[in-house]
């Protein structure tokens, strides 16, 4: 294991975060605060409790998930796409490192950054609504697993993309709608039965549900199912990343 290389990539990526601090941290925190103001305070005050939880508090796990998913995908995809774009990837490919180490560095940094963001948003939420975390350990576990899984997905997108448009398109056209429709702002139990069934094909439902369970012990699907599905996505992403490096897809010609 080339520890120095993993650390170098990790620190390189983290310093990119530090350099773009405004963009990296302030803007997601700001937009999340806006969600609280709009959905929590303004509209939320007219909504009765959902499953015994005040609406403002109910949406906290979903909001954190929303940020976690989009940020993980964006950070990781940009992190690996940029060297490809500038050509500095040559150094990565010629260095004595295995693909596992490359992934550890890039995905580790992207996941770290989105977890930090998630925790900042959690703290921010504390200013707006009363928070209760029933299972902090499970909450951290879901946070960690989701951040890693979607950073892997971002890594895949960053390798697949051959332009900045494609880099933007997945978070914009896939992650955001899936998160909004994945029960971030409501319980899927309020949907008509048909749409409940449709929702079960949305992977984000399982992530949000499990994450919300760790807060309030209420969930749309069983927490075990959530955990299992999270692992399924994780393994699927690992499989694709493994294939990419085995074949050299879009990395080596």
């Amino acid at each position: 294991m080339n520890i120095h290389a993993v650390r170098s990539i990790y620190m390189f990526e983290m310093s990119r975060t530090a350099r773009t601090l405004m963009q990296s941290i302030v803007s997601p925190v700001l937009s999340t605060s806006l969600y609280f103001v709009v959905f929590g305070a303004a509209i939320g005050s007219r909504i009765t409790q959902i499953e015994g939880i005040e609406y403002g508090a109910f949406i906290v796990p979903g909001l954190i998930m929303l940020t976690l998913l989009t940020q993980s995908v964006m950070n990781a995809s940009f992190g690996i796409y940029f060297p490809r774009f500038t050509g500095t990837i040559y150094e990565l490919l010629s260095a004595p490192i295995s693909y596992i180490e490359i992934v550890l560095g890039y995905v580790g940094a992207a996941a770290t950054k989105s977890i930090i963001l998630g925790l900042i948003i959690l703290a921010t939420a504390g200013f707006f609504v009363p928070l209760r975390i029933a299972h902090p350990v499970w909450m951290m576990a879901f946070l960690l697993l989701t951040a890693i899984t979607f950073s892997l997905l971002g890594f895949i997108i960053g390798i697949w993309a051959d332009g900045f448009e494609k880099l933007q398109i997945i978070p914009l056209l896939l992650i955001t709608p899936l998160t909004f429709l994945g029960g971030s702002f409501y319980s899927i139990n309020v949907l008509p039965p048909f749409w409940q069934t449709v929702s079960l094909f949305n992977p984000v439902v399982y992530l949000v549900s499990g994450f919300r369970w760790s807060f309030y012990e209420v969930s749309d699907v069983h927490v075990g199912t959530s955990l299992a599905m999270t692992f399924v996505f994780l393994i699927a992403c690992l499989g694709v990343v493994g294939w990419i490096f085995k074949t050299g897809y879009r990395l080596k010609n």
Binding site: H4, A5, S8, S15, R16, T86, Y90, E91, P96, I97
Partner: peptide, 21 residues
């Protein structure tokens, strides 16, 4: 093919680490 926003020192040190030193 160079980075853009990194400093000369940072990018050179990065390379050293990448090569396991």
């Amino acid at each position: 093919t160079t980075d853009a926003f990194e400093t000369v020192w940072a990018t050179t040190s990065f390379s050293r680490g990448l090569f396991g030193k």
